[in-house]
Each structure stands twice: as C-alpha cells, then as structure tokens.
Amino acid sequence: MHFRSSSEIGTLCFLRERLTVNENIFDWAFALSLLPKLLDALIITVTATVMGMALAMLLGLLWAVLKKSKQPVMYWMATTIVEFFRSTPLLVQVYFLFYVLPDAGLRLTPFQTGVLALGIHYSAYLAEVYRAGIESVPKAQWEAAEALNFSKGHTFKAIILPQALPPIIPALGNYLIAMFKDTPMLSAITVLELLQTAKIIGAETFRYTEPLTLVGILFLILSLISARMIRFMEKRYGY
C-alpha cells in the first residue's frame, strides 16, 4: 500500500474512471426491450436448425447407403461428395450457394439457401455417423433376415435401421447442437437470424453489450435444453 509505483497508481485511476463512466455497463431495461425482437430471430434460428438437420439426416442416410453400394459409380460418387463437403468450410459453402445458385437458375431465399447449406454440410458428417451405426448391427441380423427371404430394402428399413439408430442418438444430438451453433454463419448471407438481428440492433442503437449478451444467453439456454432432450431420447429408445 505504502510503496505503490506511479504506474500502478495510474492504472487504478484509469479503471476507476471507466467504472464511473460505465456505471450501467449492462442496462437491464434496454435488454428487456430487445427481447421480443431477438425471440423472433430465435425462431428463425431454430427453424433453420430443425430444417437443416432434417435435410442433413436424409442426405446423410443417402450417402451412407450409397457408400455401401456394390456399384463403384455409386460408391465413388457418395465418397467424393462426403469428402468434398467435409473438407471445405461451411462459410465458403454458404457464400458459394448464395452467389452461384441464382446464376445456375435456381432462385432461393437467403433462408432457404442457408438451410440447404447447413443440410448439405452436415450430411457429410452424418453419413459417417450412420455408417458407424449400421456397422454396429451384428452380421447375424442380416443373415436372419436373408434366411427369412426379406428383400434387401425391407431388411435395411425394418431390421437394420431401427437397430442402428438408437446407438447413434448421442452423436446425432452433438451434430444438432453443433449445427445450431453454426447458424450465425447464415448472417453472412443476410438471413435475419439471432446474430444478424443483434448486429442490426447494435448498429442502430450503438449499444452492442446487451444484444450480444442476450444472443449468447439464448444460445446457451437452447443448447442446454437440446442436450437434455437428447439424453432423454437416448434413455427412451435404448433397449
């Protein structure tokens, strides 16, 4: 206390000054007033996630099935697609679809483009998840189905897939949450999701603390809820 250096005293004074100036560093009333707008944006974010995940699960299953195909063309095609989308950044894919699809004659809204990008990108990861699930089903189950004269398609649909899915629920859940946290990428193509809305509020009011904090909190709450739901499903569908 007695032998403080002058530089230390300088720092303390500076900190004190900042604290007085920004006494209300977080304005609760202002934050509260932003909530309706941000909750609207949250709906967009959640919708994009749900639709993107549905698309990713469908496409991922398709890649996984094609990769098991005995026809080299099918296998080669699926493998290339999966490798390509897994090895390039999501943001690049988002931009690419946004600027190139209209040139190719396909006009989609930014939201639709975003869902498509999320779905395709994550389908590449989900293909591997499905593969692991399918391989976890004992070979004897295929044989039992063969002995009962089931077609390949029915075997897959009724015997293999229902057993392959429960063990991969946790992995699917992880990717769902990862995709949810990747939705801010869609702000790059003007989708009015959470982050984009917060940035607009910031630009209009010159206050970024409240909107960005709320965005973080909303993401946290939804991620935690999703994780809970996934754990519940794991218990419900495991046998």
């Binding site: 004897a140 189950q141 044989e143 039992a144 002995a147 009962l148 015997i159 229902p162 057993q163 046998y239």
Partner: peptide
C-alpha cells in the same frame, strides 16, 4: 428353406 441359428438371431427391437 428355413433356418434356426445357434445364437437365435431374433430381432431385438
């Protein structure tokens, strides 16, 4: 032809 296996191979689900 029908077959019964050593490890049953019932469909667990």
């Amino acid at each position: 032809v029908g077959m019964v296996f050593q490890s049953f191979n019932l469909f667990p689900h």
